[in-house]
Simulated assay, not measured.
Amino acid sequence: MPDLAAVERTALLTAALRAAESRRPDCLYSDPYAEAFAGEIGPGLLDEIRAVTFPPERDRTLPSTPDYNAIRTRFFDDFLTGVACDPGMRQLVIAPAGMDSRAFRLDWPGHVTLFEVDRPAVVEVKEQVLGAEVPRVDRRVVAVDLRAPDWETRLVDAGYEPTRPSTWLLEGLLYYIPEADAHRILDRVRALSAPGSAIAADVVNAAALRLPSMKGLLEVFARWGCPWLFGTDEPEEFFARHGFSVQAVQPGEPGADFGRWPDPVPPRAVGDVRRVFFVHGTPATR
């Protein structure tokens, strides 16, 4: 089995979080593949996150990563299955796909093709774990880095049609890459998005990268070799610069709570607080 780079290993953390969520009696979703995807490494990564998030000797100051991940997964589950109900929406792209199992655990209409894009090492590990498992959708795997100059060509070679509407999910990506890369990727996604397309993503705000209260969590990711690098306080404006008209909702707000977010949600006008945004929308009319 190939070694995974630092950022790629965060896919194992996400898998461990999803496995833990699936064991809860009040789980927001069930992922029967997550434990196998997490393997031996994922639980250890999760233990490190839990240790800094829930310190036994003092009150929690960091966001609850388990609750956040549960809400994020469910929010994007609902988003993807909702857009897939449209008979005209035949293409879904999850990039990066990591150890995502939506192709196997969710019900999909027959007209949908789901493309999973991620680095070759991640794809190799994932396919080894899946073995002979059969997806519930026409699943196309594209083993390519989103920073590669030819990833669009590789996607088209797998059957993606740029002239047809598509839905893109950029989950767990933008805060791990430099701002310049975030701009480039969104420009390239927009170029592939025909009228009638949709997009969703998660992104942190700028304060989440520098607040002292975030230090413990940021230090863990930096120690792993995958520091958080990008955040924006105005996600709507950021996506608009790349031709998308989006809405941004925070965990704990209506539609992104599911009875699980444990912290207050300060109004957007309040500064110097950590925030995460779930962004979703469509290409702007030209």
Rank of each mutant, 00 (worst) to 15 (best):
Y160C: 01
H242P: 06
P87R: 12
G281K: 13
V249F: 09
I71E: 07
R164V: 13
R9G: 04
T153W: 11
T285V: 11
P32Y: 09
L17W: 04
P266F: 07
G110H: 02
A200H: 10
C27R: 15
L218G: 10
R9T: 14
P251L: 06
I199F: 05
L170K: 04
E219H: 10
E219R: 12
M99W: 04
D263F: 13
R268M: 01
A248H: 11
C85T: 14
V112I: 08
R58V: 07
W224T: 03
S30C: 09
L106K: 09
D187Y: 02
G98I: 04
R24D: 09
R154G: 01
P32L: 00
C27W: 10
D59Y: 00
V273N: 01
P87A: 10
R72P: 12
S193T: 15
F230D: 04
M214P: 09
R24A: 11
R50E: 14
H111I: 06
P178K: 12
P227N: 08
D257F: 03
L192E: 05
L217N: 11
P264G: 05
R164Q: 14
D145Q: 03
T81D: 00
I185W: 06
V270F: 00
H242S: 11
A201K: 12
A207N: 11
L174C: 08
I71Q: 05
L186E: 05
G39Y: 02
A15F: 00
I185C: 07
V83K: 07
A269I: 06
R184Y: 00
L186H: 07
G225I: 08
K215R: 15
F54N: 03
P251H: 11
P55S: 10
G82H: 12
V117T: 02
I177Y: 06
R184C: 04
L229N: 10
A95W: 04
T153Y: 07
N205R: 09
P55R: 02
V93D: 00
I199D: 02
L211D: 08
W108T: 05
M214R: 15
D100F: 08
E40W: 01
G172F: 06
F221S: 08
R147K: 11
H242K: 08
H111Y: 05
V137L: 08
C27K: 15
D86N: 15
L62R: 10
R190W: 01
A51Q: 14
V129A: 09
A198N: 13
D107Y: 01
L146M: 12
A208Y: 11
A34M: 07
L173P: 07
T81C: 13
R72C: 09
I41D: 11
N69H: 13
P254N: 03
D26L: 03
P195C: 08
R90W: 03
G252I: 01
G225P: 10
D263W: 08
C27D: 02
A6Q: 03
V203C: 14
A34I: 10
V125I: 11
